[in-house]
Amino acid sequence: MALIEVEKHEVEEEQKPEPVRVRGLPFFPHFLLREVVVMCLIAGGLIMLASIYPAGLLKPADPFDTPSPIYPEWYFLYVFGFLKFWTWDLGPIPAKMIGVTVPMVLWYGLLILVPFIDRNPSSDIRKRKVAVTLGVIVLIGILYFTYFSIVHH
């Protein structure tokens, strides 16, 4: 695959404009070709999965017949898991309210604020011990609550 060097002119200060060489794959046609190959692989994988495991369809909805167990989509399992896990009232706040608020409102609130909470300018993983540790803990937590929701059904 042809690697080329593309010239870029820096428009900085009164220094003599030295061309900065960016090593990379030109978008067209080389990079695009690779992308198309990857896309074909993914599309093929999806068609294969769909043929082997077709989307299911149970009995028609019946409001008077509660089936058991009921599972939500896998990416919401951790919410259910946390709701089942948290059974302690905190003062006047009932346990259920905490169980609902923490994995939805608090979790997404914190997630959106990540760049404004983490003011460490380094993107070197060795200099970001706190952020990486917290990330791993949260990840393990979500996996644990997902597991919890499946086991305690």
């Binding site: 149970l58 509660t66 089936p67």
Partner: peptide, 9 residues
Amino acid sequence: PWDQLAFWA
């Protein structure tokens, strides 16, 4: 799909 799983979930 309005099946049992859909409704109750």
